[in-house]
């Protein structure tokens, strides 16, 4: 009696040990997945992540629970996910700032490329260089020229953000006096340029204010043109070698099984390319920009290097 019980237990134990690795891949997911959002509930990153999660859970057959862990520009949540079990049940929907901007400036307790695996990129708002509509600056060149002669102030969403660093690089290259004025969020920087308290602002969500004739869009900080304003140049097209590519993507802790990563990449790509998701994002005034995980990793790597250089110039 005793013998058989022990034997069967041993057998069971052995059986469960050997094929567990392959089973985990085939059965994945067999329980709820947590998708961490490094910002507060209700922001655009959170709303779009909740939408992509609710659409993906239908394909995966398991619920995806969105968990907000705001604070410290998203680095708290990134650090938590980087240290989570790499079993495919903890993912993060993250953005440029905690991926390659803040890590280039100081120790944040994780290395984006070593501790996390990018799965895909699905969005990323375009940041524009905007001025008041009656501003004397008609183009990026004019703004830089103004910076050389009189000095120009520009507002951004916060100190040491991607937009600030991109323009700091522009200032170094051109020798223009571009004085940064950090605000507490892009909305307040937009208000400041509308009210004429700063000469320019580097902000997203400018479309309606530009179309209404309150703001003038001089250029975009991204690597590609904003489809809403195809004629407005990127910084590079205007002859400045700086950019702030905006990403919104999903990552998993490093060491997650490649089979699981592939399954997630396929699922999220399918969802993000659907018309339903596109029309949802249009309502939210956010673009859909799909990029495979490998390409996202490359973007992050390039920018980490570029931003480290800029940060060094700034004396950080």
């Amino acid at each position: 009696m005793k013998f058989t019980r022990r034997l069967s237990l041993a057998l069971l134990g052995g059986m469960s040990l050997v094929p567990s690795a392959t089973l985990a891949q085939q059965d994945y997911p067999d329980r709820a997945i947590t998708l961490v959002v490094p910002y507060g509930a209700g922001g655009t990153t959170d709303i779009s992540a909740r939408q992509i999660a609710s659409m993906a859970e239908e394909l995966l057959g398991q619920p995806i629970v969105v968990e907000n862990q705001p604070g410290a520009s998203g680095t708290n949540a990134m650090r938590a996910v980087a240290g989570a079990d790499p079993d495919g049940y903890t993912l993060i929907a993250t953005t440029s700032s905690p991926s390659f901007v803040t890590p280039a400036l100081r120790d944040v307790g994780y290395d984006t490329l070593e501790d996390l695996v990018p799965i895909l990129n699905y969005s990323g708002p375009y940041h524009g260089v905007v001025v008041q509509v009656d501003s004397p600056y008609e183009s990026l060149d004019a703004l830089i020229a103004g910076g050389k002669s009189d000095g120009v102030t520009y507002g951004t969403a916060g100190a040491m953000g991607g937009a600030h660093l991109a323009f700091a690089a522009v200032a170094t290259q051109t020798g223009a006096r571009l004085q940064h004025v950090p605000f507490d969020g892009a909305a307040k920087a937009t208000a400041a340029v509308l009210g004429g308290h700063v000469d320019a602002a580097l902000v997203p969500a400018y479309r309606d204010l530009v179309r209404d004739g309150q703001l003038r869009l001089l250029g975009v900080l991204d690597g590609s043109n904003d489809p809403d304003f195809p004629d407005v140049p990127t910084l590079k097209e205007a002859g400045l070698s700086a950019e702030f590519p905006s990403i919104v993507g999903i990552m998993a802790p490093a060491g997650t099984d490649p089979v699981i990563i592939q399954k997630l990449e396929a699922t999220f790509t399918e969802v993000a390319s659907s018309d339903e998701f596109k029309s949802f994002m249009t309502d939210l005034s956010q673009p859909v920009r799909i990029m495979p995980g490998a390409e996202l990793a490359k973007t992050i790597e390039e920018n980490l290097v570029a931003y480290r250089e800029i940060a060094k110039d700034l004396g950080n």
Binding site: A72, S73, R106, M160, P182
Partner: peptide, 9 residues
């Protein structure tokens, strides 16, 4: 916390 102007802790 983070300095609002220089962005450093």
């Amino acid at each position: 916390g983070l300095d609002p102007i220089s962005g450093t802790p």
